[in-house]
């Protein structure tokens, strides 16, 4: 299985990047500040463990995409432009295995520190707000969906990285992907709904069924939707209302994450596989 060889090499190479450790450090620092602030106010910042996790999610919602994109957007193009890719591809690795290995390797470099940080933060949070049994299970589920959330952005970044050899376009594309996927998506869906319903306000109160799905396609929304499975949180409440269609159930969140991982990689690979290095 040659992708594992590539992955192991990539973990060693990318895992020694200082930038990544810096950004992960920022993540850890934010959590420390949060917990410190809670201690400072004698532990009344949050109502309970669920509330604590909900706050953590809002931080992860913008930082995990940032870390994942930073980690992935240079992965292929840097090797291609510098020339180290010809070393890997001189070996009996197919391009598909190279990409699979890169994805797996960067996935480890992304998830090991992020999930490690989460484990520590969860422990500290659990000490301050002792969780119930279901909240404990919910936290494990939350760690799992955070991993999927990060891998989706990593896949987008690696796909961009293998799509072209123009570094500026990849950088701009990554920047655009962050803006679009992290903040702009809802506005776009809302604007689409308003436009199609000729700006009648009531369209926004009684959304058409397909609009729910479009909202859910945003990774952070799928993340929120899935978070509801583990916690009784206000996040993702839209999809639990009585008006929401059946197909925005939690499993659709899993489908959305799977799509964010598989589709960009498949599209990127179909380009990368056919092109000259």
């Amino acid at each position: 299985m040659s992708w594992q060889t590539v992955a192991a090499k990539d973990v060693r190479d990318a895992g020694r990047s200082k930038t990544i450790w810096l950004v992960v450090g920022v993540l850890g620092l934010l959590f420390l500040v949060l917990i410190g602030a809670d201690l400072w106010t004698d532990g009344d910042l949050f109502t309970d463990f669920t509330d604590f996790v909900t706050t953590i999610v809002s931080i992860l919602g913008f930082l995990v995409p940032l870390i994942a994109l930073l980690l992935g957007y240079k992965s292929v193009i840097h090797e291609r432009v510098s020339g180290s890719i010809v070393l890997s591809l001189s070996f009996p690795h197919s391009r598909r295995e190279l990409i699979a290995g890169t994805f797996a390797g960067r996935g480890v470099v992304l998830l090991a520190p992020v999930l490690g940080t989460l484990a520590v933060v969860g422990l500290l949070g659990g000490l301050m707000y002792p969780p119930s049994g279901s909240e404990l299970l919910g936290f494990a589920w939350f760690v799992l969906i955070t991993a999927l959330f990060g891998l989706g952005f990593l896949a987008v970044a690696i796909a961009l990285s293998m799509s072209t050899t123009a570094e500026r376009r990849v950088t701009l594309g990554t920047f655009g992907a962050y803006i679009l996927l992290v903040s702009f998506w809802d506005n776009l869906v809302t604007a689409t709904v308003q436009f199609l319903y000729r700006f009648r306000q009531e369209a926004l109160f009684t959304l058409p069924d397909w609009a729910y799905l479009l909202y859910l396609l945003k990774p952070a929304e799928a993340y929120n939707r899935l978070l509801r499975v583990g916690f009784d949180t206000t996040r993702g409440a839209r999809y639990a209302s009585s008006e929401a269609p059946w197909f925005v159930d939690w499993w659709m969140g899993v489908v959305v994450f799977a799509a964010w991982i598989a589709v960009p990689l498949a599209v990127g690979l179909s380009r990368f596989d056919r092109t000259d290095l």
Binding site: S2, T5, V6, A8, K9, R12, D13, A14, R16, S17, S82, G83, S84, V86, L87, S88, L89, S90, F91, P92, H93
Partner: peptide, 29 residues
């Protein structure tokens, strides 16, 4: 490529790997 040993043109070494790690990567590959 299973038959090949290659000294290609226009390569670059991996930035953060030691020489030995490069050889080990080749051995595993």
């Amino acid at each position: 490529r299973e038959h090949l040993g290659v000294l290609p043109e226009g390569y670059a070494v991996y930035d953060r790997l030691t020489g030995r790690e490069h050889i080990e990567y080749a051995i595993r590959s």
